[in-house]
Design a protein around this nucleic acid. Structure first.
Length: 463
RNA sequence: GCGCCGGUGCCCGAGCGGACCAAGGGAACGGCCUGCAAAGCCGUAAAGCCGCGGGUUCAAAUCCCGCCCGGCGCUCCA
């Protein structure tokens, strides 16, 4: 049985599905107006791993991740660049999608864009108005929070308490009845993109988009709603209020991933430690995979640390995965020839047990590396179970989206020059000309190439 | 200020009442293997009182109280 922490109830509880065998998952995506940063990556990876694991367990998952392509940031960016909101959104959405692909994040089944759902949003707002829990002001349409029972349940804070701190950072709009009330529809300002509505031209409030799209695509009572824990309030709280206001059942389970720190402190532009996914990826060809492993090694609900040393150690760990695959590739039954049914049972059980318990990826990764050691030991003594153990490592890593690649000798191989040097070194070795062999190895080393001698001949890889 | 989450070895990070495993990854050191290496295996960590101080319990890293430190959130804004 798979259990997950549910933000609403504040406890780890069994995942009870709306429909047997099928999971409807909605994860909040980014607002596209700038480079995606490592926080976006962690969030996307969290739900990618959740989705992959559910599928690994045989469930049929429908994963929806939205793209917010209209909001203040986009409008400001367009204004600064002298371009249009649409151009900004299209440009940055492409960057985001490329970055996620580089991280081996599976494409969600649906990637709805806010601007394509405006009609549904207007309709949703209208129904909230009909329900009598919203009102209009010169600046837009607002939801009357006090009319929604249980409004603050998701944040686990008292309503008065919330109200008391409202406005601590942002000025309160005087026209609102209550400082907690929030915009469902924003009246158009000059030079801003707008859509027609019963309340005049304007654009949708942020929260209405996710309700309209999640309910619109997945239907009432869908299974899991996820996002960064910074979205618990106000975003998810308000989404939920909108759904409740019209009497619709919203998410059955709320999942939130934690933030990340860079060099021990929170990542922020003002501190200058703001890191984008593209920068991270550019620093090393294997960083995409290494970052995923790093994310997996910390539980998703805990703030994680990222720095250059940790990236390097994650890369080293990934190398061990590949090293095993290289050794195993010469076996009678290499890893790719064995399927999920042929794997080491104790390892798979331990892996599933860890993952079933609120996505225990750190323990799951530990199981993979313990199995890796067992596989290498079996290989050393030529034991029969080496094949199964090696395949287990590859499959379990794959279930988490970590690619294991025996052929990873530098994707940019084709380096005929290096192949040639390696061959000359091997010839020298066979002639017992150690001086020449070692000199060649030194040259290769200077090029960042490591040579490994195996029973099947030398193989090389980039350090 | 209010709410929530954290503080475990050189670094990261599991564990969250009890068999002494305080997992796993990285780094370091020793051994085996190797022509020598690399990879791999085995083993080690003369300082881990598991942030500090109390308490509960036969038993606490794991529960309770206080304190210190870090992080996140505190409406139309990741």
């Amino acid at each position: 049985m798979i259990s997950l922490y549910d933000t609403l109830t504040g406890e780890v509880r069994p995942l009870t599905l709306r429909e047997e065998g099928r999971v409807a998952l909605y994860a909040c995506g980014p607002t596209v107006y700038d480079h995606p940063h490592l926080g976006h990556a962690r969030s996307a990876l969290t739900y990618d791993v959740l989705r992959r694991y559910l599928e690994w367990r045989g469930l049929d998952v429908r994963h929806v991740a939205n793209i917010t392509d209209i909001d203040d940031n986009i409008i400001n960016r367009a204004r600064d660049e002298g371009s249009t909101e649409s151009e900004v959104a299209v440009e940055w959405e492409a960057v985001y999608i490329d970055a996620m692909a580089a991280l081996n994040v599976l494409d969600p089944h649906d990637r709805p864009r806010a601007t394509e759902w405006v009609t549904e949003m207007v309709d949703f707002v209208a129904r909230i108005m009909d329900a009598g829990v919203a009102y209009t002001t010169p600046t837009g349409v607002y939801l009357r929070v006090r009319d929604v029972p249980g409004y603050s349940d998701l944040v686990h804070r008292d309503l008065d308490d919330l109200r008391a701190s409202a406005g601590a950072r942002v000025e309160v709009d005087e026209a609102k009845e209550d400082p907690l009330d929030f915009a469902l529809w924003k009246a158009a300002k000059p030079d801003e993109p707008s859509w027609p509505s019963p309340w005049g031209p304007g654009r949708p409030g942020w929260h209405i988009e996710c309700v309209a799209m999640s309910l619109g695509i997945l239907g009432d009572d869908f299974d899991i709603h996820g996002g960064g824990n910074d979205l618990v309030f106000p975003h998810h709280t308000n989404e939920r209020a909108e759904a409740l206001a019209v009497g619709r059942s919203f998410a059955r389970h709320w999942v939130h991933n934690a933030m990340l720190n860079i060099e021990g402190t929170k990542m922020s532009k003002s501190l200058g430690n703001y890191r984008t996914v593209v920068e991270m990826l550019d620093e090393h060809p294997d960083n995409g995979r290494a970052f995923r492993l790093l994310v997996l090694q910390t539980h998703y609900r805990k703030t994680m640390e990222v720095n250059a040393d940790l990236m390097a150690s994650a890369r080293a760990a990934c190398q061990r995965l590949d090293a095993l695959a290289r050794r195993a590739s010469v076996l009678n039954r290499p890893p790719e020839s064995l399927g999920p049914r042929d794997l080491d049972e104790s390892a798979v059980d331990a892996f599933n047990t860890a993952m079933d318990d609120d996505l225990g990826t750190p323990q799951a990764v530990a199981v993979i590396f313990e199995t890796l050691r067992r596989a290498n030991a079996a290989l050393d003594r030529g034991a029969d179970d080496a094949e199964v153990l090696a395949a287990t490592v590859t499959n379990l890593a794959g279930a988490l989206g970590v690619a294991v690649d025996a052929a990873r000798r530098g994707a940019d191989a084709g380096d005929a020059a290096i192949d040639d040097m390696v061959a000359r070194r091997q010839a020298a070795r066979e002639a017992r000309d150690w001086a020449t062999a070692d000199a060649l190895r030194d040259e290769l080393s200077a090029l960042g190439v490591v040579v490994e001698d195996t029973p099947a001949g030398p193989i090389w890889r980039r350090a």
